[in-house]
Every structure is written in C-alpha cells, then in structure tokens.
Write a protein that binds this DNA or RNA. Sequence first.
DNA 1: GTTGTGACTACCA
DNA 2: ATGGTAGCCACAA
Length: 104
Amino acid sequence: MIWQVLASIPQGKVTAYGQIAKLCGYPGYARYVGHTLKQLPHGTSLPWHRVINAKGQISFPVGSDAYQMQRRRLEQEGVVFEGEKIRLKHYQWNGISSDSAPDN
DNA sequence: GTTGTGACTACCA
DNA sequence: ATGGTAGCCACAA
C-alpha cells in the first residue's frame, strides 16, 4: 500500500509520512512509513525523496549524505527550498498535516 | 514480556 | 517561532 501511494505522488510535489500513512488507511503509522522507506532498495523507482516530515523538512540531519541526496533529487524535480524547509505552499501534494503554517 | 529506538506528529510552555 | 514532552506503531535486544 505504502509503495502504491508513494508511486502516486506527482513529480515535483511532496507529502508527509503521516499523510501517506493516512492515505494508506493507517493513520498514525507515520513511523511505519519511514521504516518502510528505509527498507526500499537503493535502485528503486519509487519517489521516496518526495516524502518529508510534517515540518516541511527532510527528515535527515542537515548536511548528511542522505539529506543532500534527497534534497538534490527534489530540486531536480523543481521543488524549491527555503533554507532547510520546502515551500509546501506550492509543492505539497495533498495538504500536509497542519504545522508549518505557510505564508508569503 | 519490558525497554529502547526510529526517515513521525501534535500539543504545551 | 523554537524547544521539550507525550502519543503513536512496529521491531530488535
């Protein structure tokens, strides 16, 4: 299920772990989603990089290898970053939770 | 079976 | 807006 929802995320858009879990019919399974993405093979065609946390940021330590890789992939798809945060206002796929209070 | 940890969230200070 | 705490669920020790 998670893979299916993951694959349905449009290019150039992002969503949150909790949102995916909810869409899969498992609200509250945000951590499970993260656990699943962690298990994805490196060569997977699934857009795991389009999954971020509810804060609108990448869930990896800033500067870490994984962080930079995910960020680069997102930017390649046209996603714009504001510092470490993503412009959810324009790039969130299906409303991400609540926090992040976008402005502009 | 209890305890600790993790690519998470929400609420409160 | 930022930082700390509690809830959340699955998995490993």
